[in-house]
Amino acid sequence: MARLYTNDLSIGYGEQLIVKELSIKIPDKKITTIIGSNGCGKSTLLKAITRIIAPQSGTVILDGENISKENTKLLAKKMAILPQTPESASGLTVGELVSYGRFPYQNGFGRLTKRDYEAIDWALEVTGTIDYKYRPVDALSGGQRQRVWIAMAVAQETDIIFLDEPTTYLDMAHQLEVLELLQRLNTEQGRTVVMVLHDLNQAARFADYIIALKDGEIVKAGNCEEVIHYDVLKKVFHIDAEIGRDPRTNKPMCVTYNLIKGE
């Protein structure tokens, strides 16, 4: 049985229902990507699974427990989330920002222990940001900053990491750098990674499992062969897609597409 899953999850804002009775299972120690058009409920779903917002009905179950009843610090030792637009880190050094990932392990005095400092340096090492430790976060490039935010999540030492569009605002090289880092965290450390991505070919290349949403409901969930498919993309994005093969991975990829008109 999956460690993390939802049962009939419905999420909305006021009277507007965004996600409707959604039941999904997140594969353990795999990379799961959520795709779909703007406004389909991708980010809303992530926020509900990580308890940032409360669902109107349904449950999120982690390790057999309803997360709505879980102790906050205990939950923060199991899952970390990097939002689409992280809060400003103005005035902080990289090391100071990454130290915030140790919050779930701090006692009432809020002092960092030797173990905390070891975890911070380890997170900086595995994300390739150790050289920036004493630099202001504001002085870094977009790609460097994104890796530092991921380092903060890594320092939290959770088995599951959620990321909402981690490649937004990054150029192609920095997008690849971030995705390869997440892939290494998955393959080398067994972290479960769940992220929202807009780029279909990035989803196909890096994800083991893809969930395609439309209007808050699942159109298709499965591996990239099952989801990066003409019929699925037509229904989800209303496009006429030409599906080919990535010459480097042999996975399906969207070569080109047209909008479908008149239907």
Rank of each mutant, 00 (worst) to 15 (best):
L4P: 12
L4Y: 13
T6F: 00
T6L: 00
T6K: 00
N7A: 13
S10H: 00
I11D: 07
G14F: 05
I18F: 03
V19F: 00
V19T: 00
L22A: 03
K25S: 14
K25G: 10
I26G: 05
I26L: 03
P27I: 10
K29I: 08
G39V: 00
K42P: 05
L45G: 00
K47C: 04
I49R: 11
I53P: 01
T59S: 14
T59N: 09
I61T: 06
G64I: 09
N66Y: 03
S68Y: 01
E70V: 14
E70W: 14
E70I: 13
K73Q: 13
I81R: 08
L82G: 04
P83G: 06
P83T: 09
P83Y: 10
L92V: 06
G95S: 12
G95L: 06
G95H: 09
E96G: 09
V98F: 10
F103K: 10
Y105C: 01
Q106L: 14
F109E: 06
F109L: 15
F109C: 06
G110L: 03
L112S: 01
K114F: 03
R115M: 04
E118N: 13
A119E: 06
E125A: 13
V126M: 04
V126K: 01
T127S: 07
P136Y: 10
D138C: 06
D138V: 11
A139S: 15
L140F: 03
S141V: 02
S141F: 02
W149P: 09
I150K: 05
I150A: 07
A151M: 07
M152S: 01
A153R: 14
A155C: 04
Q156E: 03
E157I: 06
E157T: 09
T158K: 11
F162T: 08
L163D: 05
H174I: 05
E177H: 04
V178A: 03
L185F: 10
T187S: 14
T187A: 10
Q189F: 15
Q189C: 07
G190W: 11
V193S: 08
V194K: 07
M195D: 05
A204C: 08
F206E: 03
F206G: 06
D208T: 09
I211S: 02
V219I: 15
V219P: 05
K220C: 13
G222S: 06
N223H: 12
I228S: 11
I228V: 15
V232W: 08
F237Y: 15
I239W: 07
P247E: 09
N250A: 12
P252Y: 09
C254P: 07
Y257M: 04
L259D: 12
K261E: 13
G262L: 07
